[in-house]
Amino acid sequence: MHLDEFSEGHSFFHKMDPRVKFIVFIPLVFVIALSKNITAGAISLLLAVIFIFIAKTSLKALLKRLVVVNFFILFLWFTLPFSIQGKALFYLGKYIFSFEGAIYVLSISLKANAIFLFTISILGTTEVFSLAHALLHLKFPKKLIELFFFFYRYISVLHKEYQRLFQAAKVRAFNPRTNLRTYRTYAYLLGMLFLRSYERSQRVYQALILRGFKGEFPLISHFQLRKQDLVFAVFMYGIGIFILI
């Protein structure tokens, strides 16, 4: 399983200092998420689309993610315009699809998609380990980062393990349906996965202790703040203030 698939590349965003990314990104998404007017949403979405083109991410992978992100939004389109009172756009039986409701959901859709595209173009373009390293610089609890590091490291390992278990079940003619047999099989597969993860964690821990691990990872690469990054930060704060107004 390849998790940080957007992190490969040589664009402006790929080269940026991850620390700058966080201090720019966090205020930006809060400002967008909490903004109430629809033009702010539209402008952020436009900017986010431009960023995606600068970052040159794979569009196919991006579209796949967009569908998932918009699933919840679609759910809102089906409910909110009917619950918000206002001028009727059309009727569905006795229910009124209101204009005000549609505007409200449209604003949510713009904001959510803008934030999603910003996430991929700004954060997604850095390897997860570098992001974790950057969070350490920004005074995140050390234990939490350590937890995150091992957690991320072993996802792909355990995913492979699960695939092997599932394949073994399939070879024995396992055919998933809605019945108790299927659920028992899944439960036992997962139980086995937890068991193996438990045993693996013991081996990993022993191996770490054996090599003198004391909860610190020596780092080879260090971040370097470039002039472009600072210019970018100032520019983005400007955008943030603009959206706020």
Partner: peptide
């Protein structure tokens, strides 16, 4: 820490 973290990975996969 290692045990909890790897458990989390298993749950994530699940």
């Amino acid at each position: 820490i290692v045990k909890t973290a790897i458990f989390c990975s298993a749950f994530f996969v699940a």
